[in-house]
């Protein structure tokens, strides 16, 4: 087994120089379940490869900025970004374009969740009681875990999170936000609604310990962003082929990796509200 891997690695090293030119590589921001990323997204790569007629490879990354960097450095040509990370990435790579978003991403939302020991009740308005509690966002660069909830919190209380909460943390991702609020490391948190719903469904959440206390208004979020030079490199009309392949993705098994019902067309303009919000709270220049 070991010998085989060594040979495989050696062969990979020798071949990589030749193969790199025509391989089409993509990545996805690690926003929730990171286990077996290779296995899950490997299937997506196989699907795209079949549809596009080129070698498609997936590389896993550990953080939002790593995904953006890989996109900027042309180590990936296509990426599944969040709202904010997509805006950041497109600002760095001229000509890059949002080509598709999840069906759910047209009206995405964030849940504010609280440990039940806080005895904060769910309501239609952002509850006053969250003041003075400890609070965690998800990743610092997350749209649903940071940008939008911070925006709505600032709007509701006219104060920054640092002023409002006794302690502000960044858990790193949505799953960890849930587990930290559930275990009481933080009392209140902001989490991507889709991750929450999925985990509730899978029975991963102890709803006696943590519950949703408020839902934000909707906003656009995740999208597929592609580099502007792909037509020149992979052939005329390649970008459209990618878009079509994504929109045609119907296999539930593949869609579950994101997890989305389906993909729908998107454009850069759809994310203007995100850009404005990012500038408003100083995350974008």
């Amino acid at each position: 087994m070991m010998l085989r891997s060594v040979f495989a690695a050696a062969a990979g090293l020798l071949m990589s120089a030749a193969a790199v030119a025509e391989t089409f590589t993509f990545t996805a921001i690690p926003d929730a379940d990171e286990s077996r990323l290779n296995a899950r997204f490997g299937k997506v790569a196989d699907y795209l490869s079949e549809q596009l007629g080129v070698d498609v490879k997936y590389i896993p990354v550990k953080s939002y900025p790593a995904a953006i960097t890989a996109f900027r450095n042309d180590q990936v040509q296509l990426a599944w970004f969040g709202g904010l990370s997509g805006v950041q990435a497109r600002a760095l790579v001229e000509g890059s374009e949002a080509i598709a978003q999840g069906y759910e991403d047209q009206f995405f939302k964030t849940y504010i969740i609280a440990n039940t020991s806080t005895e904060i009740e769910a309501s239609d308005e952002l509850p006053e009681d969250i003041k003075g509690k400890t609070f965690t966002f998800g990743s610092k660069g997350s749209t649903s875990g940071r940008l939008m909830p911070e925006f709505f919190i600032r709007e509701a209380f006219n104060a920054s999170p640092d002023e409002l909460f006794s302690r502000v943390g960044f858990s790193g991702d949505h799953s960890r936000t849930i587990s930290q609020v559930q275990s009481g490391v933080y009392q209140v948190g902001a989490v991507n609604y889709s991750v929450w719903d999925t985990e509730v469904e899978e029975g991963k959440i102890d709803t006696d310990k943590v519950k949703v206390i408020w839902t934000t208004p909707t906003y656009p979020d995740y999208q597929w962003t592609i580099r502007g030079d792909v037509d020149a490199r992979y052939g005329e009309g390649f970008k459209e082929k990618v878009r079509t392949a994504l929109l045609d993705m119907k296999d539930e098994d593949l869609l579950a990796s994101f997890p989305r019902k389906s993909f729908v067309p998107a454009s850069n303009d759809d994310y203007a509200p995100i850009e404005r919000t990012g500038k408003a709270i100083g995350l974008l220049d």
């Binding site: 690695a9 790199v20 450095n73 042309d74």
Partner: peptide, 9 residues
């Protein structure tokens, strides 16, 4: 030989 492959820089 074991090092992971090097993407283009």
């Amino acid at each position: 030989f074991m090092l992971p492959e090097m993407p283009p820089v």
